[in-house]
């Protein structure tokens, strides 16, 4: 558990190479799944195409539940990529963790607050961008003073709170899951009896982590659409 992060400084920026590796791996896996599933597209879908179409319909359902399709349609690509990227990222840390020279290399990229907060900030910034673009700067600015002017500080705090909770919720869930997995695996160091006894909760917790990972990916996508809808919808 005393793993260090492989941090290297390059051009004045700190790079956690483990994150860089895992982000690349996640992106590659998502890209391969999506591209391989859409190589042989047909009117009668089968196998992977069917699965991906189900994902598309799922994200469409999320978007439709928060805003009308006329404004929400443009966020479909964003929602799909977010959902699949976060889900794959959450799953990556489950089967094993690879530590090399006391540096932790293989883990979920989403078990790092830097990564999740980056995604959260990106989503919130996008929501502000689309708020200005779709409603105009004036209507966008007026939203901060509704229902009356006294709400301005609250609204300002809300934006930061949204960003923090969105990022930290994902990070906390995944990181906690990996910590517990690590602790259960660590039982094996305490002796063979404890190790064998630890297998059962390990299996249970891994199953639960798959569930949590899927749920968190869904929640992140859902909240992304909620925040976007909050900014771009007229009926508020």
């Amino acid at each position: 558990m005393e793993h260090e992060a492989p941090i290297h400084t390059f051009m004045g920026l700190q790079f956690n190479l483990s994150n860089v590796l895992m982000i690349t791996v996640s992106s590659l896996i998502v890209f391969l799944i999506a591209v391989l599933a859409t190589r042989a597209l047909s009117m009668r879908p089968g196998g992977m195409q069917n699965f991906l179409e189900w994902v598309v319909d799922f994200v469409k359902g999320i978007i439709n539940s928060t805003m009308d399709w006329h404004t929400g349609g443009r966020f479909l690509t964003l929602g799909l990529t977010l959902l699949m990227y976060i889900f794959v990222s959450n799953m990556l840390g489950l089967p094993f963790a690879v530590a090399f020279d006391h540096e932790l290399w293989w883990k979920s990229p989403t078990a790092d607050p830097t990564i999740t907060l980056t995604l959260a900030v990106m989503v919130v910034v996008l929501s502000h961008y689309y708020g200005v673009r779709l409603k105009g700067a004036k209507a966008y600015g007026a939203e901060f003073f509704k229902p009356f002017k006294l709400f301005f500080p609250l609204k300002l705090i809300e934006e930061f709170a949204n960003t923090l909770t969105l990022g930290l919720r994902l990070y906390g869930n995944i990181y906690a899951g990996e910590i517990l997995l690590g602790l259960l695996v660590g039982l094996a160091h305490k002796g063979i009896f404890a190790g064998i006894l630890g297998i059962f909760p390990l299996i249970v917790w891994q199953g639960f982590s798959v569930f949590v990972g899927a749920i968190q990916a869904f929640i992140f996508t859902m909240l992304t659409m909620v925040y976007l809808a909050h900014k771009v919808a007229d009926d508020h």
Partner: peptide, 25 residues
């Protein structure tokens, strides 16, 4: 703060999104 991670994650996500939009979605 790992500024490099932030930058890398952002770039990776945007590139992934653009590639997927073109080749998959």
């Amino acid at each position: 703060v790992n500024g490099g991670d932030i930058l890398f994650q952002l770039l990776a996500f945007i590139i992934l999104m653009l590639l997927l939009r073109k080749y998959a979605w």
